[in-house]
Design a protein around this nucleic acid. Structure first.
Lengths: 253, 253
DNA sequence: ACCTGAACACCGTTCAAGT
DNA sequence: ACCTGAACACCGTTCAAGT
């Protein structure tokens, strides 16, 4: 009998920063309703909506704290399979998928969080780890850092875009969906022969943006692989030159 | 003396769909204030805020109309330099940059528009054109369509992300900026040697997300180039086989 | 037929008052 | 020290009333 009262409000929880953040994150998941307002948050906590202001300066500060928690969860999930430099591709793919999955569990938060920076320790060491992996694979440090940042931006941006669609009310979602289906179904073959030919695939991709993300990720990583190959070739070339010069030097000396 | 009255409201315009959309788009640009509300829109039109409801069912319908206009502008700008299949890379780069530029001129609209679909004719023919170019470069039609969709999603997602930051109030922007600078400046070298080494570059990339976009775009297109090479090689292989079989057939016949 | 203005529900936020 | 509840400014939207 931990519960008391007959209201629809959730169990009364001690109002701490952590309890508030936890409740707020819960509200952002589809099961929690997918909307974050002070009114709903107050009900979830069994307290007055404005009580939250005793622990957070404003909504922005609350969102920042929520984001930190979510990022830490994503990083923990992502770095589980931190494989060696020879398997950088699988590692990066796994990390990107983990971030996306954790974010899409709370679309309403993902939309709010994607822009904001959270300077958490665990995130920092994860970035260091990724740079190390790419560097170990053959990329100069600066270039490795660039690739890490690109992957992060790319993943967050596309995830946020998916989240934004999930947050739309059902009506708008249906409107968008219908627009695509109808449009691609009615394309005149003589004016748009190629679109007509690929309409089925394009409709499929629209319905499932996880697939688009996988394709983009794979294509992007192909580009990274190319950078690594080039870097290795360059390194091999300079080493060969150095060896030759050394040989020449010893021959002359 | 076209102007009259002493209010801060703009010139009184005949209330048509086009006039409303034009005014609304203007409000979304930084010069226009960068915020779209019915109140501000009414003032801009010199009419009662609720007068807009005589021409648009709700705000969503207005945003859809605004998005259509902006997309058409972007497409017009993007297809100016539609070069041949041999220069697909420059064409796609130009298109992506054009879309990004047009969207970032009205960050407040970009944020609202990025998810919504607008089935405009001019957009359709632009997509057909891009698929044709990639197909001409050697990609099978379906794969060309996939690449087109990937590029579009990628560009819109990253552009929307940049727009979301521009829409943040100055205070939050400064907070984010400070967070990055401080964090990367204070990283202990012994724990984060690689991050310490690339801190300057990472800070630069954070400050200038146009640069990140260019890098991602280039890396992604490297991946597309690889797909094209593979497709060409595959095609050459099957053609050779067919020729050999034809030769064998004629030798046997 | 089109525009106006009062009204409503909802949002984030403030502040004086309670315990 | 922490929570409550009335109040405020602002938002999108509705609707009866004007012309």
């Amino acid at each position: 009998m931990a519960e008391q009262g007959t209201t629809t409000a959730r169990r009364r929880v001690a109002l701490t920063r952590e309890a508030i953040v936890e409740a707020a994150i819960r509200l952002c998941s589809p099961e929690g309703g997918g909307v974050l307002t002070f009114s709903r948050l107050g009900k979830e906590l069994g307290a007055d909506p404005t009580a939250v202001y005793r622990h957070f300066r404003d909504k922005d500060e609350l969102i920042l704290a929520m984001t930190t928690v979510m990022v830490e969860e994503a990083v923990a999930l992502a770095s589980v399979d931190a494989l060696g430099p020879d398997r950088w591709r699988e590692s990066l793919t796994g990390s990107a998928r983990a971030v996306r999955a954790v974010y899409l569990e709370r679309p309403a938060l993902a939309v709010l969080a994607a822009v904001r920076t959270t300077a958490s320790d665990v995130e920092t060491s994860s970035v260091e780890q990724i740079i190390g992996m790419l560097h170990g694979a053959g990329l100069p440090v600066i270039e490795a850092a660039e690739c890490c940042r690109m992957l992060l931006d790319l993943t967050l941006a596309m995830t946020q875009s998916s989240a934004a669609f999930l947050v739309l009310d059902k009506e708008s979602q249906a409107k968008d969906d219908a627009a695509w289906s109808v449009q691609y179904g009615l394309l005149p073959e003589d004016r748009y022969p190629l679109l007509h030919q690929s309409a089925a695939r394009l409709t499929e991709l629209f319905r499932d943006d996880a697939q688009v993300f996988e394709l983009v990720l794979s294509t992007f990583l192909d580009g990274v692989a190319l950078k690594i190959e080039r870097a290795r070739a360059e390194q091999a070339r300079t080493e060969r030159t150095r060896t030759e010069q050394a040989r020449k030097g010893s021959a002359l000396g």
